[in-house]
Design a protein around this nucleic acid. Sequence first.
DNA 1: ATTTTTTATTTGTCTGACATTTAAAAGTCT
DNA 2: AGACTTTTAAATGTCAGACAAATAAAAAAT
Lengths: 243, 243
Amino acid sequence: MKIDPKKPADLSAQIAQAIRDAIVSGRLIVDERLPSEAELADQFHVSRPTVREALKRLAAQSLIRTQRGASGGAFVNRLSFEDAYSQQITTSTLLLSMNAVSFDTACEARYALERACAPLAAVRRTPDHLATMRAEIFRQAQPGLTDEAFCASDVAFHRALVDGAGNPVLSYQLAGAVEAMQPLMNMITFSARSREEIIALHSQIADALEENDAPAVDTALVALEAYTRQLACNVAERHRKPA
Amino acid sequence: MKIDPKKPADLSAQIAQAIRDAIVSGRLIVDERLPSEAELADQFHVSRPTVREALKRLAAQSLIRTQRGASGGAFVNRLSFEDAYSQQITTSTLLLSMNAVSFDTACEARYALERACAPLAAVRRTPDHLATMRAEIFRQAQPGLTDEAFCASDVAFHRALVDGAGNPVLSYQLAGAVEAMQPLMNMITFSARSREEIIALHSQIADALEENDAPAVDTALVALEAYTRQLACNVAERHRKPA
DNA sequence: ATTTTTTATTTGTCTGACATTTAAAAGTCT
DNA sequence: AGACTTTTAAATGTCAGACAAATAAAAAAT
């Protein structure tokens, strides 16, 4: 593991990259202990603060974890799906907000991905998934629910749908898309009428999944996408002439 | 922006989280300059190295960038799609390798996502996308191509397909799935016969896209998924009885 | 044998210093 | 005055050394 002494600045970035490469390439395996900070400082011919900055970079990506005390140190971290979820949600959220992706583009992507899960979910969904979806539908029908709470329940419903596909990779990929859209969804004001409509479509989806009817799930998802985009369009309309 | 002085350890993590929250919530906007390290150290009542560790964490997530010199400092970074791509590829790759996701699971996820792009790509693909795909197909047919080069070309082909959907959010989501699978794909030895088969299916896909024939794209993708899984299955077979 | 104490190791944090980069201010010359 | 050069100040990058706190293993005491 070497770093280029010619490149002047950002030694900590180079060291982080060297260690990252070692992890990605498998030269450092899960739960293996890295040398202590002092040893790393010697190896790379830098000071301990510089090594520490490099390690913090890796910790921010959940590539390593650290423990204090004797026989402590930095260990290669087994990246959990949870860690990956939360990282992706942060990244996706920022990407959507900072790059000013249009609601339509985000919505299209989200429902395209969800429709990809539908056929699998129709086959593999467990009673547990169905129960979660029914519970969220029930919650969405509660009067006096705030728009934020309604959106949160919507997210939970769709996560259950995605998880129903029984493919953790899909769940991981979709977590970002679904959750990152929540801030955009929160801008929509859900009238009692529109909530009814959404709940009806959610029920259609749950029913179709219960009966393992993939085409029906797809139909309902298409309708839900169209309705969501229409709601968003109305919001934009209202913003244009706010009188 | 406050940090909890009760929590004993990992001040840098707390500070990083505080700044991260400020960025995600929009209190710090793109290209805004953060206070200097010395000022941040004062504000949070910590030393400069601690602040620096926090900033390096954020830099590792591409949330900030730093500039040296007068009027330099740390600036909120506009997260580019490129940054997000590469981060997700790293995360996805590690997730697949560390969690020992089966080839089938990864393959299923990847093709489910690609099929989600197909209908959009059939409508929106540009001559440019088609040209890229044709070029990759041509490259794949070259004799003497290594398995790694064949895989790389395969990835490029599928990226063109995904990009053809004209939805940057989908491209971003799928970059991880497609690229992260490359190490797994590299384990497959592609015989001349199997390459022919794959190239034929790639051509089918390109033809169908050219004719805006979404169902045909779907059919070819289904066939390609089945064939890929069969190849992987043969590899597993050979590994079981290596004589 | 069990419990307690000590000790060594390692990360977490602080202080202070110097090097390097960079833009702006000051100075100089035409 | 205007263009060029030099100086200066501010900021990050790096280093050295120190102490605090946590923790597990070794040593000691019961």
